[in-house]
Amino acid sequence: MKTTQELYNERLNRIKKAVALETPDRVPVVPAGIAFAAYHLGVKTSEFAVNAELSHKTMLESFTSLGELDGVQESLFHISSLGSLWLSRFKLPGRELPENTLWQTDEVELMTVEDYDIIINKGFSYFLADYYKNRLDDLGAQLKQNAPFYPTAVKNFRESGLVVMQSGAFTIPYEMFCGGRTLTKFNKDLYKIPDKVQAAMETAMPEILNSIKTRLSTSQPVAVWVGGWRAASEFLSPKIWRRFVWPYFKQVVEAVVAEGVIPVLHLDSNWERDLEFFRELPRGKCIFSPDGSTNIFKVKEILGDHMCIMGDVPAAMLTIGTEDEVYEYSTKLIREIGPSGYILSTGCDLPFNAKVENVKAMISAATGK
């Protein structure tokens, strides 16, 4: 019987071969899932969302019980991590929402037009520190409190033989500004004061890139997320997307690659129109991870010889489909997107209420067990 270290090395090698566009002994399977673990084990989401150690313990127990996974995409969860990416508050179960439901973004304008000038004149770090403290209920203190537990969470998964593929998440100024301003107001900013928005982005980027270098050179994780959701090209004109999204997204990805870390391009919504741009990113170094909105077969057609693809068993299928449907679709993905340069996974996260037997059917399609 193999030791957990031997299993870990075998699985890491399998994943790295897929990322490098090679053909491993079998397609690796690396699901994403946060709230599913709470649902699976009967843990209240009101407690899970605000307790990093509890979330990690729950996720570790859940995912190690599902079958022969190669890795996971998250090792723990705390609602503060979303606040830091979206510059938004969140409604929580057991507080603003009914007990044992999912948390929700509270879409209100917290960032003002005047904040662009603060960023330009005083710097992005100055703006964030003040914003976290005075508009996000001292979010910085929450992030600092949780930070020391992340290495422990990754270590615990490793000692269980599983590779963690999301040891941190980065995004671009577009996503953060959009969350803080609200979707409606930010889109107006892009047309009414585009030069000021761009100037704030240009000020923020060196600080974001420096943060990436500092964090990754110190921790050296296997992979991190580089996320996009409202910056998807389906929401924007090509002119706006090419000015305010792509140049910054490319810089973030290249900064992660420069540190020897795999960027998992966690891309919600539909990015089909601009898939050709992703060929500008380093070949055999990144993972394109759509959420089901982007046609994964179109991704294969355009990027299959350039970038590893991960996904994308649909949320609806995992929730209301049958085991046979999940198994058959997963097998189709392995056959038509793989076997080289492919990792079987979920489309975005496992749904909160996914059927456990369906999750196991997805895993079985890759492992044959």
Rank of each mutant, 00 (worst) to 15 (best):
E280D: 12
V226Y: 02
N187W: 12
L350T: 09
F297Y: 15
N353T: 12
L85F: 00
Q198M: 13
Y8S: 05
P314Y: 09
T367P: 11
W271A: 01
A200P: 08
C178M: 12
A255C: 01
E323G: 13
L102W: 12
I240T: 13
V261T: 09
D25A: 13
A141C: 09
L344H: 03
G67C: 07
E99R: 12
I172M: 02
F48K: 00
N358S: 08
V253M: 03
A32Q: 12
K17Y: 06
L128M: 14
P98H: 04
S237K: 01
E114K: 15
E74T: 15
Q220E: 13
G228C: 05
P314W: 07
A232L: 00
I287P: 02
F278D: 04
L87W: 14
R95D: 14
L41P: 02
V264Q: 00
A32K: 11
G304K: 06
T203A: 14
L60R: 08
L82Q: 15
N210D: 15
R279D: 01
A354W: 05
S160Y: 01
M310W: 08
E6D: 12
I240D: 06
L236D: 04
W86I: 09
N100Y: 08
E259L: 07
K185N: 15
L97I: 06
F77N: 03
N210F: 13
S160K: 14
K91T: 11
K185R: 15
A255Y: 04
A169W: 10
L76W: 11
K360D: 08
V256Y: 04
G42A: 05
E159T: 10
M201A: 09
V326M: 08
P206I: 06
E114T: 06
L303H: 05
E254H: 06
E109T: 14
H56T: 07
P221S: 02
